[in-house]
Design a protein around this nucleic acid. Sequence first.
DNA 1: GACTTAATTTAGTCTTGCCTAAAAAATATA
DNA 2: TATATTTTTTAGGCAAGACTAAATTAAGTC
Lengths: 220, 220
Amino acid sequence: MTHLSITEENYLKSILKLSDHNQTKIGTNEIANEINISAASVSDMLRKLADKKLITYQKYYGVKLTKTGEHYAKNLVRKHRLWEVFLTQKLQFSWDEVHDLAEQLEHVKGDDMINRLEKFLGNPKFDPHGDPIPDTMGNIAIRKQQLLIELKKGDKAVIIGVKDTATTFLQFLDSIKISLGTKFTVIGVVIYDHSMQLKLQDGRELMLSQQVCSNIFVSS
Amino acid sequence: MTHLSITEENYLKSILKLSDHNQTKIGTNEIANEINISAASVSDMLRKLADKKLITYQKYYGVKLTKTGEHYAKNLVRKHRLWEVFLTQKLQFSWDEVHDLAEQLEHVKGDDMINRLEKFLGNPKFDPHGDPIPDTMGNIAIRKQQLLIELKKGDKAVIIGVKDTATTFLQFLDSIKISLGTKFTVIGVVIYDHSMQLKLQDGRELMLSQQVCSNIFVSS
DNA sequence: GACTTAATTTAGTCTTGCCTAAAAAATATA
DNA sequence: TATATTTTTTAGGCAAGACTAAATTAAGTC
Ligand SMILES: [Mn+2]
Ligand SMILES: [Mn+2]
Ligand SMILES: [Mn+2]
Ligand SMILES: [Mn+2]
């Protein structure tokens, strides 16, 4: 495999992210928006990535990762998430602090290092935000999960991930002592604004807004 | 402190390395040779580094790090060596495999991360090659050490570092089961070529060439 | 001290990755 | 279908960091 620049890696990662659960082709503007770069620059880079057979690109009609491109992108996600686990599990960072550091660490070359890191961490399957860690082949564990917002009164579930990983959101969850693994029962749903009232395993009762509930993944 | 590019960091690191135990100014060619870049390119960069007050630079008369430049350079060395300890102690890499990975890891920004890493590693004072790890202030522990080649027949000592860290040299030492901490007595010095005969603590006897003995640091 | 050689800097280019402004193509609207 | 709007691409530039070739300065030699 050829050596990719950090920039190229980041483009592939963005395209993968935008493709998630979405087969259709990705537009230039979407990518530009995702990585905060002008559409003109993205257009330039797409041509280069297509030349390298990392994406299929038809002018004016969007892009899609090739198998090769997808492989690189998933490997990058794998590295990102393993480093996030390292930072939280070994260096005691909290889940809202690790993303930016992982953005840098993911570009360090050395698959052997990453495989050793994975083993050192005890072969984790999910990162600190509940996102699955691809294996060396790019395979990703599928979990049956749904958004908290989709639950009904009386449903019991456990929190297994967050959709939004913004610092403010994660810190808010910390402040109300909610984390991955927290078990609860839905004891009410407000019709007016779709806030949800939960009863946690530890006995506490909590009211969460629709926006919050739309960004928490649960498993029943 | 301003943000330095990886390139700038590497120039500072090279200048520090070349300055080691050597107060005189460093020449353009020396740097060019150290980082495998043309002298013309080095000349360009020196002007830029001088503009940023990271080095003092007088055209045609060489360069020297400023206090600021030295601080950056030592911090880089600190990061490099801590990552090398991580790779050997936690990921089980051997001492001949870690340098290139550390060359990448040292450029990851985040002093907090490095301080946590240091603590996680148990505040090591030396890296896997016996080189001292600067503290956050850039202070470096001084050890009384000398080269093996300087010893005389009958001297007892312990190996505490290597001067050459080339893969082939380190693998050679592995192959003859010599590592940091190995204790020995000099039982003979060949007059003809200055090879040295050692008796190790485990009873083995070894003959080492002058070149090998010139690249091993010992403490008595 | 003049001449030769070595070290260093300058001049002119190249590539990567970004930008803005303008042109072109696709899509939406009437 | 013609026009307006949005999206995307092209054109032209810029900065960083590299190169080679040429010019300049310093250092060494007779
Ligand atoms: Mn992340
Ligand atoms: Mn994550
Ligand atoms: Mn090293
Ligand atoms: Mn080292």
